[in-house]
Write a protein that binds this DNA or RNA. Sequence first.
RNA 1: GGCCCCAUCGUCUAGCCUGGCCUAGGACACCGGCCUUUCACGCCGGCGACACGGGUUCGAAUCCCGUUGGGGUCACCA
Length: 487
Amino acid sequence: MIMDFRRKKLKRVRFAPSPTGYLHLGNARTALFNYLFAKHEGSTFILRIEDTDLERSKKEYEEMLIEDLKWLGIEWDEGPDRGGKYGPYRQSERLDIYHKYVDKLLKSGDAYYCYCTEEELEKEREKAIAEGRPYRYSGKCRNLTEEERSEYEAKGIKPVIRFKVPEKTVVFEDVIRGVVEIDTKEFGDFVIVRADGMPVYNFVVVIDDALMEITHVIRGEDHLSNTPKQIVIYEALGFNIPTFAHLPIILGEDRTKLSKRHGAVSVRALKDEGYLSEAVFNALSLLGWHPKDEKEILPKEEIFKQFRLEDVNKSPAIFDRNKLRWMNGVYIREILPLEEVTKRAVEFFEGFGYKADFEYYKKVMEAVRDSIETMLDIKERAKVFFVDEIIFSEDVVKEVRSDEKFYKVVEAFYQKIKDKGGISKEDFKTITKEIQQELGVKGKGLFHPLRIALTGESSGVGLDILVEVIGIERVKFRLKRFLEYFG
RNA sequence: GGCCCCAUCGUCUAGCCUGGCCUAGGACACCGGCCUUUCACGCCGGCGACACGGGUUCGAAUCCCGUUGGGGUCACCA
């Protein structure tokens, strides 16, 4: 029994963004797949902030990252905002830890000081490119004598620290890509500590993943070529090597890696454009992965249940906005309860200057939710519930004038309601039935004039609902305006 | 350019490992129709793909080789 318990060691995964901008969809998908894996396996999910690039990292970005992740519905067990046994979870706060391991590598001879200046290296690099061969660091400073070192120091050159890469072929098995083999000749001795003393990504990521006891490193395919660099460090330090899973990257419509230049591809932008987090969550989980049956609208629990890393496909995917739009529409009209969609819609109503109380918003949402796909669509679709000053376009004027029944229909309707104190959907139906019989108009011939009179538009929500929601006084007001305008 | 990865409708994908059930399935988009006395939702139908060329095999989307195309990566960024 005790053995059994020990064997069931919890898996630990992490999402490690650098706070250099908004959370974009590529990273969001990586975070999501880590989260899905954690949920499926019952493992621990860690958020770690990779802010060793002092130039680009900003505290504000970290806060936005956390906000966006939470909005998406991704939760972590340990992180900079909530602590945990393996903290701190911000790399800028772990510098002393890194330096301990740098010293260790220096002592064991696995790392060395390098005094080559950036200018020198740049020259070498240019030369290599000119000669058509790939650039690798020459290893010039690998075996400096104490005298040579003191000479450089005396000149005031601040050294970087490089890892002494052993000559070998690194082999590892990636959960998604299978066996990957890369020769260390491909990269050569790389920098692990900058001249300013700040350690570099490929080094710190190893220390953190090892110390935080990460068992599965799930990240974007763009890190595939970094993996052997990291493995040689794991080996030099005697750490356990985690299991790797490199996700296919997400491409923009031009088939290159998704980035800022592809326009609004941050989750923040999606949120502002009126997408629901549930829909984004659902759509993102279908990029590179798919459930066993053909149902695509899936509640989170179902995704947790079915998600398996082994089922993630290898080919990159282009993010399909159209499908997200459609899916968002499904969530708006079918999945979320009316009360909930209305809550989400409030800020948009207010943003459009459509002022009303929650109950009114709810009625409007009930009327329009079948015909909108994002909250931004509310602006056009719900306008008729808020704006009484209708402007008749030239085309409308022409149309009304050219059809004598047009005016008559509206007038007849007005006559029937002008003394009423209220109007319901049913009232509307009865009245239109009467007009149908009296004037001999039906279908479009009947509804179109009323729609124009009440909204100025030739399409929109069901009129029976419209009149009920805006109420008798506003109906009278709008009809009277029409009649006066064309009378 | 070196190295690595990928390759099914326009897009997301099922099938590929364990060849025959594939006349290649689903979804979005698009087109047409039905429902609705108006709008929308919904329903039904249509269009549309195994990158190419060689093998292997009785049989290949599925296995092998090559070609082409696309992508990633080559920092004192992450």
